[in-house]
């Protein structure tokens, strides 16, 4: 088991005929991810050949979902059309038993995201991950389910859940688990935008309820208070050990550090506040991402899940 996506997930790619959609769609297929179709308005009825995998293209998400029975969508469309793509996916999944939308696109206007998130919230069975994120991956026995842009080969099926705001730092966390011979159930990149769908707490709750996940690595960054809220949730609800790191201890206030949401404003959202919140919640803290593996072993050992 894993959370939200697994070997049985059926994936659609919104923007499949675009450069990004084709490039990453091909890599998803190489990992044996079950890509069942794509959507590009005006190109419905065509087929696209991704290294020998012939994938049908639909005009709308409504058609694509009802024809394929897909329950996951990966969005690779440009920023100016991405919010609309989320709306379309949300409606299509809502009418067909629910689904997961993974929006990879970076640079979507914040006000567009407020509307899109509000829309998704109205549909019980629909979840949004992202935007501006690497996506979600659940490694399987032979490949796995990769919905996003992460390098698949660094992953291995295992028992650690990973949730992170950052892309490459998620890969770092994955590599750290591998360095101590632990694999992953699911890795979720929730993205670094100020307004996004799934948050830390959603992921922590899902990992807590997932019987195969025994511990979680959580990677935060400066800006907002999502890490503090997550720490509070961990303290109250989490029975499994959590290892945490926060990026941006050296970031100057008032400066956006790459991600739209990574900014210390009015003295709030600093890494030190977040680390303090982590420690208060009993989260195992790594001050250096290269230490995540070692700290994870410590956490697993304390929980009686591993001989040190």
């Amino acid at each position: 088991m894993a959370i939200w996506v697994d070997d049985d997930s059926k994936i659609l790619i919104q923007g499949i005929t675009g450069k990004q959609g084709t490039f990453h769609g091909t890599r998803m297929l190489r990992y044996n991810t079950n890509v069942v179709g794509g959507v590009t308005p005006g190109k419905g009825g065509q087929k696209i050949d991704l290294e020998g995998n012939v994938i049908p293209v639909f005009n709308t998400m409504g058609e694509a979902v009802s024809h394929t029975g897909a329950d996951v969508s990966a969005i690779y469309v440009p920023a100016r059309f991405a919010a609309e793509a989320i709306h379309e996916a949300a409606e299509a999944f809502n009418e067909n038993g629910g689904g997961l939308i993974v929006c990879i696109t970076e640079g979507i206007p914040t006000l567009d995201m407020i509307k899109a998130v509000d829309k998704v919230k109205q549909y019980d069975g629909v979840r949004l991950i992202g935007p501006n994120c690497p996506g979600i991956i659940s490694p399987g026995d032979d490949g796995g389910c990769k919905v996003g842009i992460m390098p698949a080969f660094i992953h291995k099926k295992g028992r650690i859940g990973i949730v992170s705001k950052s892309g490459t730092l998620t890969y770092e966390a994955v590599a750290q688990t591998m360095s101590v011979d632990e694999g992953q159930t699911t890795c979720v990149g929730i993205g670094g935008d100020p307004v996004s769908g799934t948050g830390f707490i959603d992921c922590l709750e899902a990992f807590e309820n997932d019987p195969e996940t025994v511990a979680v690595v959580m990677i935060g960054e400066i800006g907002g208070s999502a890490e503090e809220d997550a720490a509070e949730w961990v303290k109250e609800n989490m029975s499994k050990p959590v290892v945490g790191f926060v990026a941006g201890s050296t970031a100057p206030p008032g400066k956006r550090m790459g991600h739209a949401g990574a900014i210390i404003s009015g003295g709030k959202g600093t890494a030190s506040e977040k680390f303090v919140a982590f420690e208060r919640a009993g989260i195992y803290v790594a001050r250096d991402p290269s230490e995540i593996g070692r700290v994870l072993v410590e956490a697993l050992t304390d929980a009686g899940l591993r001989e040190s």
Binding site: S164, K165, S166, G167, T168, L169, T170, E172, G192, I219, E221, I222, F245, A247, G248, S249, T250, A251, P252, K255, R256, M257, G258, H259, A262, A271, R287, D288, P289, S290
Partner: peptide, 26 residues
């Protein structure tokens, strides 16, 4: 973003770039 130190950083990814700065300081 320019800072006041003496070790330049060239990194891919915003989170990893921040983490690289943090670890240099550490």
């Amino acid at each position: 973003v320019k800072l006041d130190g003496n070790i330049g950083c060239l990194v891919n990814g915003a989170g990893l770039a921040m983490a690289s700065m943090d670890v240099i300081k550490l």
